[in-house]
Design a protein around this nucleic acid. Structure first.
Lengths: 113, 113
DNA sequence: CCCATGTGCAATCGTTGAGTTGCATTTCGA
DNA sequence: TCGAAATGCAACTCAACGATTGCACATGGG
């Protein structure tokens, strides 16, 4: 679980996977059902589902003859929190830099380059 | 809306770009400076920076002879909010489905687990 | 001025990954 | 039982992408 952030983002980076996730967010579906409404083959869908399951964005469950898949919102929420935290840290650093740059410092320049 | 969500996620999906972003989150750097600390050529860095700038994750500024780049935390925060919203919608749908499934209907099949 | 540094553009190469086709297997329903 | 539907695995094609090299141009410092 808890795959590295770039890996999860890469999983979200493919437009077809995004389409799949959108459908699975509306309700559970099988790979064959997805292949009927999306312009790709069932096998391609299956590969995408495996990628999504690897990073925890999708959970699968065997229901009789078919396997139904469902989007996991909690994992996406966790990713969102991570990204938000990182974004805030970037802004904090930026504020520090600006603060130092605009500070009417006596003579803090020159030696740090 | 600057760039579609999958596009931004794809930009975040590459490990090298993630490294670049991490460095640029600590402070502004030029492409050459990044190439000195990362195991890739300056040209490769330049291409990654262009991708990151396209989706608004990096801003660039000409400072004399060199161009310094900086990570934009606000854009990452916006992405995080979008992902969080989507994740919550998925969970909401899931709750609805479970609710319907557990509702005592005309002929409820005892499916547990 | 002259050289070192920094940048941009173009061509190229190897790998990755998305997508397809084919086949064997399993399972539900008539 | 028999067929239709769903799945999994494997081999293959092909375009996109990451990365490199080479070259030309601009700029700042000694």
């Amino acid at each position: 679980m808890t795959a590295a952030l770039p890996v999860i983002c890469a999983a979200l980076g493919d437009p077809t996977r995004w389409e799949i996730l959108t459908r699975l967010g509306e309700g559970p579906m099988s790979a064959s059902a997805l292949a009927r409404v999306l312009p790709v083959s069932r096998q391609a869908i299956g590969k995408h589902l495996e990628v999504l399951r690897e990073v925890g964005l999708v959970e699968s469950e065997q229901r009789g003859r078919e396997v139904v898949h469902l989007a996991v919102g909690a994992r996406l929420g966790a990713l969102a929190r991570e990204l938000d935290r990182i974004g805030r840290s970037w802004e904090t650093r930026l504020l520090r830099i600006k603060e130092v740059a605009e500070r009417p410092g006596p003579h803090t320049r020159g030696a740090s380059g």
